[in-house]
Simulated assay, not measured.
Amino acid sequence: MHPDTTATTVAISAIEETVRIGILYNPLSGRNRRAPDALPRFISGQAQILMTEVRTPREVHDALTEFARQNVGMVVISGGDGTVQATLTELFTRSPFATCPQLVVLAAGTTNMIAGDVGLRGDQHRALLRLFDWARTGRGRIVRVERPLLRLQVPGHEVKFGMFFGAAIISQGIDYYQQNLHNQGLHGVVGIGLTLCRYLWAAVRHSNRRMTTTPMTVGIDGQPPRRENFLLFLVTTLDRLFFGMRPFWGGGQGPLRYTAVRTQSPYLLQVLPMLARGRKCLRGTPENGYFSGNVNEIRLFTDSSVALDGELYTPDTMQEPTVLQCGGRATFLRID
């Protein structure tokens, strides 16, 4: 059983005729960084489109405040998963809008995991042409995709809203990628693939226990917390992840999908390829250290860094839990 997610195709005639568009443009995101002036040139001369460069959460806040003042009804995010997370956090903690604007996500970052699930895929210039044509003429078809959001509270940090949480080799891998591969030009799926291979190979060989072991005490939906050593721990509200993976096979009705693998779980090479596609297998069981389910709340006691949409946060104490809950629902638009 999967959590409740909704994708609805809506006739264009049912959509309001005039929508003012505001674009949050992060020139430092993966794809934008390669040609930071390309999108501003593409947008120049279109007075009805507002575009603001954003590099920090504070700049996202200021841009959204100005968009609300100018009655923007659709916010387009040209940035990576971290820019989407900063936007969602602003909209769901201190939104300047009376009604949440429609959201469109472009594939302008490094991994583009959120855009790959709920956004406009492919070249962002062509995607914007389709969007602008729809806004002017009503031609095309709009798909409204609704997803729950993760609400993350890490001790010592402000509340964040996002869509993909990772710990253990996920947060370690993000740190390794940022420190060692990103600045060497190994961007996107190449860098991600190399990082995953490095950590999984270490897990298979049992060659670096520090690299592949993260001790955490985990409580799920009010159950008594249990301390385990984890190789992998992820929680998401997305339907699919990078490389098209859908590593969810457990039951339950909660909006948060979680998957975890205990350190030194047996049959790793046999089990992971099947579980990555969401297929149950005889050896992928809790007894063997493979966990998955759809839940409402997760509490983690850890002093290791955790990641939300590619951004790392380190708890400042193990005495308080890192808490994951559903933080509401957001609606994203796709134009066909």
Rank of each mutant, 00 (worst) to 15 (best):
M1A: 09
H2W: 12
H2I: 07
I12S: 15
E16A: 14
R20V: 07
I21V: 15
P27C: 05
S29D: 13
G30T: 03
N32F: 08
R33K: 15
R34G: 04
A38N: 11
L39M: 15
S44Y: 06
A47L: 10
I49A: 13
T52K: 11
E53T: 10
P57E: 02
E59D: 14
V60M: 03
L64K: 07
G73L: 04
I77T: 01
S78V: 01
G79A: 06
G79D: 05
D81F: 07
D81H: 08
A86G: 03
T89P: 00
E90D: 04
L91C: 05
R94K: 10
S95D: 09
C100Y: 06
P101V: 00
L106M: 15
A107E: 11
A108T: 07
G109T: 10
G116K: 04
L120W: 00
G122W: 12
Q124E: 11
R126I: 05
R130A: 12
D133A: 09
D133W: 14
R136I: 08
R136Q: 14
T137G: 08
R151F: 05
Q153L: 03
G156E: 02
F161P: 00
F161Q: 06
F165W: 08
A167R: 02
A168V: 05
A168L: 06
S171F: 00
S171C: 08
S171I: 02
G173K: 02
I174L: 10
G185F: 03
H187V: 03
V190T: 13
G191N: 07
I192L: 05
T195P: 05
R198W: 06
A202I: 04
R205M: 11
R205L: 13
S207K: 10
R210A: 13
V218A: 06
I220Y: 01
D221Q: 05
L234H: 02
V235C: 15
T236D: 01
D239S: 10
W249G: 01
G251C: 05
G251H: 10
Q253S: 15
Q253V: 10
T259E: 01
A260M: 10
R262M: 07
Q264T: 10
S265Q: 04
Y267A: 14
L268S: 11
L272N: 03
L272R: 01
M274N: 11
A276Y: 14
R277G: 11
K280Q: 14
K280P: 11
K280L: 09
G284H: 06
Y290K: 09
S292L: 12
S292C: 11
L300N: 04
S304A: 13
S305C: 07
A307C: 14
A307P: 07
L312N: 04
P315C: 05
M318C: 06
M318E: 05
T322Y: 00
T322I: 03
L324A: 02
L324E: 00
C326D: 13
C326S: 15
T331I: 13
T331G: 08
L333C: 12
D336Q: 14
